[in-house]
Design a protein around this nucleic acid. Structure first.
Lengths: 113, 113
DNA sequence: CGCTTTCATCGACACCTGTGAATGTGTTGG
DNA sequence: CCAACACATTCACAGGTGTCGATGAAAGCG
């Protein structure tokens, strides 16, 4: 027999490996990571994080994207629970979601590399 | 005048906001998050992290995916620098990349929620 | 030497996603 | 009121991505 045989029908372990993370939680995590898997959204989050509060009209120029695109990205980030928007007057002000604030700053400025 | 006017052509700040994260670094981060933006890869990483060393043939059944699909996901994770593969005999053994080990465990088991 | 096993690659398909023009909705200001 | 503005929504399209069957390459086994 080989030195170290992969888990076939071995008796030491069940037929299949029990994942430490189940499919449901994996989907939740993947969906959250998907919200961060876009350069525009990373920069958008970075701007919101650095300025505290930003309206959409202040995002189109630095991100060099059209207004519908910016609106799309803010919606994605909001649905992921990373930012929250408040309509004041005719502007929508975006800031980091309080619950995700620490995590976002860790993701962006943390030991990413 | 409105209470708080968005940064238009204001004189207190430059015409456009300087993002705390530039486009290049944003792309790097986004690419890394893209590798985690899939439920199968999250579970795959979780299995590798919990068992230390796994060969591809031990992944097809718990993940309920075909062999080419597993090969695709391991390639993606390896290209992202999250896992490393070593060919021993006819099996390819996967384990967490040493540089990314702490980060991966934080991503999966950390205060993700 | 064949035969099997393990994995990677290719090709094809369905699906998802980022993008922007056009349009709609609500608000402000004259 | 009506015009201008900020933003969301709709629609359409190009490109990316997950998936698997088929095929190929490399390594062990009899």
């Amino acid at each position: 027999m080989a030195a170290t045989t992969p888990t076939r029908g071995g008796s030491s372990l069940p037929d299949f490996v029990t994942p430490a993370i189940g499919p449901v939680e994996a989907g939740t995590l993947a969906r959250r990571f998907s919200a961060l898997a876009d350069p525009v959204r990373i920069q958008l989050l970075s701007i919101v994080a650095s300025r505290g509060e930003v309206c959409s009209c202040d995002l189109t120029r630095p991100l060099a994207k059209s207004q519908p695109t910016i609106s799309h990205h803010t919606t994605v980030l909001a649905n992921a629970g990373l930012i929250v928007g408040e309509k004041r007057g005719r502007w929508t002000w975006w800031r980091l979601a309080p619950e995700a604030r620490a995590e976002v700053r860790r993701m962006l400025g943390g030991p990413g590399s």
